[in-house]
Design a protein around this nucleic acid. Structure first.
Lengths: 277, 277
DNA sequence: ACCAGTGTTCCGTTCAGTGGAACGCATGGG
DNA sequence: CCCATGCGTTCCACTGAACGGAACACTGGT
């Protein structure tokens, strides 16, 4: 059975109310894609990652396609509820059915089911916000989160994507997942906060260190004044396929790190075991 | 500006561990669709509503398309992370990026933002599970839920779709939303539990009653031994665009209904006002 | 009244999506 | 042990479906 196409690199989704990010109007959707119209349909959906509401002309411009094409794609997507039209101004936004299918993918995530009880225990025993994240290209995606305090507002909603090099989870995973590490190397190291990793040399050095100590820490690498601590979760082949992490304000977290590391390590091991490692 | 195509009727998504539902392999995706390949791509995604994991041949059979076509669609969807392949058996399942986009749609839902603080208040003052749902064709989709006790397991995950005629939310909405009421009339009244509405006559009679008293109740219409109570949320044009509801075991809920009705009614009014009604 | 913008519709060209057949690889029963 | 049967994948010639450009109806601002 030959290898299927790998997902291409995607830009982390940024909310308007979060840090904004340069868009990539002309994507390199040449590699590993075979159905052009389906590809443009997905490109159209991707447009809404950057802006909540877009018009036909907006999208056509952004994707470099004819207005009629964009319109055809949007009505097709709309007929299935993947996008919906604002009756006031005629613009389009992401639809409910996308949410429906997304929740289905979420509810069926086996990793998440294995991790949830352990995460609850960690949340209780540490008092910090606990995250579960998985690698996707050069980024990590947060799959589950148990919130304490109101660090939820800072992190944004779950399902959010962050570059691997500015999260402890990303470092924990990349340290034991060459594909994730390489993907980030290729994607570069754009800074996000005062202490974000900025070079490939730093990246590989940090990964070495993570391998040595077994966990990853980040202070103000993604959000100013926030600290997180992550431990990788392994599959059968000893590759990191996820990370469990705790997150909180630096001044609250720093004194507790020594206490939390063994708890988190034990938690990650339990999850790995549940997955058959 | 002419009317865009309306979403066609979709079958409620049923989990394997919930009540199963007859599938519709040959869908009537003739009406209101223009891009065939995009249409089949969405059909492919829809296949995963019924089953968590499917192979290329499965999908080809189910959709009545060539295996090569199904494969092409799946690899295209896979290259964008909308589906992913189980490396063990080569089968496909829904992908993370679907979850990502779905969460984005969720996070941007204005209705939800308006409703959340009110829902929290209702949850606190009643002690029951609180739901927010919106109409979609002949069904309602649960958009947000604040869980008390463990009624969460019974209801399944948010984002789930239930036929309008067997939920209090559906009745509350349909009573003040002709389009939703008609869509359910056309779709019929399949029974789900002992007290599910079974005829068009009952349906219209119930809707009349709901209009009179201002709220809708259901006992064992969708889940045996469960009761829910719903009040519609209106938009500017006095059309119901959502419902807020409380849910719980019948023996716990029944004695409290009189107490909860005014609380829920006030909550719905607050949400409607926030939306500019 | 104009103009610039929108979303929508129509139409002829051509290119891209189609199905069928063949491939290589697993699995399992005779 | 090998053959049959299933899988996911690849290749290819044909044709119909997706494309862009132009015209449409409509809106809001000047």
């Amino acid at each position: 059975m030959a290898m299927a196409a790998q997902p291409e690199h995607r830009q982390p989704i940024e909310e308007p109310w979060c840090v904004t990010t340069p868009k990539r109007p002309t994507d390199d959707h040449a590699a590993g894609e075979w159905l052009k119209s389906v590809g443009t349909a997905l490109d159209v959906l991707e447009c809404f990652a950057a802006d909540t509401e877009l018009g036909v002309s907006d999208i056509a411009r952004r994707l470099g396609i004819a207005k009629s094409t964009a319109h055809r794609v949007l009505t097709t997507l709309g007929s299935r509820g993947m996008v919906e039209q604002n009756p006031d101004n005629g613009q389009y936004r992401l639809g409910i059915h996308l949410y429906e299918l997304g929740q289905l993918a979420h509810a069926r995530n086996g990793l998440r089911h294995a991790a949830l009880p352990v995460m609850r225990e960690v949340c209780r025993s540490t008092g910090f916000t606990v995250n579960l994240s998985v690698p996707d290209g050069p980024d990590v995606v947060f799959v589950e989160r148990l919130v304490t305090q109101d660090s939820g507002r800072l992190l944004g909603h779950t399902g959010r994507r962050l570059p691997a090099h500015c999260t402890s989870s990303g470092k924990a995973i990349a340290a034991h997942n060459p594909k994730a590490a390489d993907a980030r190397l290729k994607a570069g190291f754009p800074p996000r906060a005062s202490h974000t990793i900025r070079s490939a040399a730093d990246w590989t050095a940090i990964l070495d260190h993570v391998r040595k100590v077994g966990h990853a820490v980040s202070h103000s690498e993604s959000f100013e004044g926030a600290t997180s601590l992550a431990v990788p979760v392994f599959d059968r082949s000893h590759t990191a396929i996820a990370a469990i992490s705790v997150f909180g304000p630096t001044d609250l977290m720093r004194p507790d790190i020594e206490r939390v590391v063994p708890l988190l390590t034990a938690a990650a091991r339990r999850i790995s075991k549940a997955l058959g490692a």
